[in-house]
Design a protein around this nucleic acid. Sequence first.
DNA 1: GTTTAAAGTGACACAACTGTCACTTTAATG
DNA 2: CATTAAAGTGACAGTTGTGTCACTTTAAAC
Lengths: 209, 209
Amino acid sequence: MLFSIVSIIVYNRLGVKKMARERKFSKDDLFQATEQLLLMHGYEGFTFSLLADDLDVSRGALYKYYENKEELITDYMLYEMEHFLTKLKEIELRDGFEEQFDFLLNLIFSYSDIQKMIKIGQQIPVMVNKKVKENKDQLDKHLLEMYLCLQNFLKLGKEEKKLNPSIPEAVILGYIFQSVAIPNHFNIPHSVWVRSIKEMICHGMFIKT
Amino acid sequence: MLFSIVSIIVYNRLGVKKMARERKFSKDDLFQATEQLLLMHGYEGFTFSLLADDLDVSRGALYKYYENKEELITDYMLYEMEHFLTKLKEIELRDGFEEQFDFLLNLIFSYSDIQKMIKIGQQIPVMVNKKVKENKDQLDKHLLEMYLCLQNFLKLGKEEKKLNPSIPEAVILGYIFQSVAIPNHFNIPHSVWVRSIKEMICHGMFIKT
DNA sequence: GTTTAAAGTGACACAACTGTCACTTTAATG
DNA sequence: CATTAAAGTGACAGTTGTGTCACTTTAAAC
């Protein structure tokens, strides 16, 4: 059973306000630690023991909120995805394709681990329990919503006669999202890096002829 | 201690030829299973138990060849990298930048998991034992060699006045390698997929003006 | 057939993670 | 100050993985 993790105020059977003992960690603490440990150890390497140590609570305490790690991880992903989607929808406020492209690229760079997280999400077995299945279904719904939003973005690019029509939309979107995963082994300054990435996405590696 | 895994013929102290019992699995069986399980479960999820089950031998038998999974994994990676490098060096036999680019892209698509494997390689702790450290050092040497080979490829592109000089080499190479990792969610046919990716890398998503 | 040495087995002790639960702590409420 | 209920704890049993080792199996060599 998942309890309200936001509000500490709860009500007993008679509807009388009661205050519980103060939490040792906030929802943000929990999700931040989850993210960090997931990226560090991967899905199979992530454990409640690691998480409990990181948050400085006992392992048992975590089971008050989640029955197992799948439930926690999908819940965290849902949280991240909802934040990302909220931001992404602001793209429609930008005028013109190139403005929207700039916006999208900056957004993706500020959520640069989303690609890794999607992969980790795919590793989670569906049949763990009902809650996990619900979370995964919800995540799929959000992914679809994201795709629809980005289709509008590409549609604008085509209307403005800027996009090469012979390249499938899926390739363009995949290419844009994948770009944040390119490892900057030589520590090229961030501004140069982003500018170069943008140039590659727009015009490729060849000299304009 | 790592024994010869290639030849079954061994010699005793007096130099007399002796034949050992036949192996239940070949080096290829071993590495193929290792690859598959690594890609499926990731570094931390990979275990000797899984591997032994997959090869249909006892766990104990594996310890005859490798002291631990780090030793096995780095050995497998070295093997893959050496194969890849051998193939890559054939790039110099191709005439002209565009020919070489075609060759490189095809090669990378045929080793499409190399990107994932490099990431997994980074997760292996260095200080496990001497053998692991040696393998990792050797891997680094091969990565450098690979980079040098690719620098020649880019140099040719610049000499032929085809490459945009304002884009850092690391970005171009990063893009080429990363492109195989773009997930083909909509199952676009392979030939269309590769052609589109190539078009993106060469000229970007914008219409040529 | 006997010898030899590698290949393979299964059991052991140890360590880590899981899920549960009775119990303690805390702080607001009455 | 007694009550309440959530927050948190630590111990327990169960499972899975680790590394080792004495032992058995195999097949060539003599």
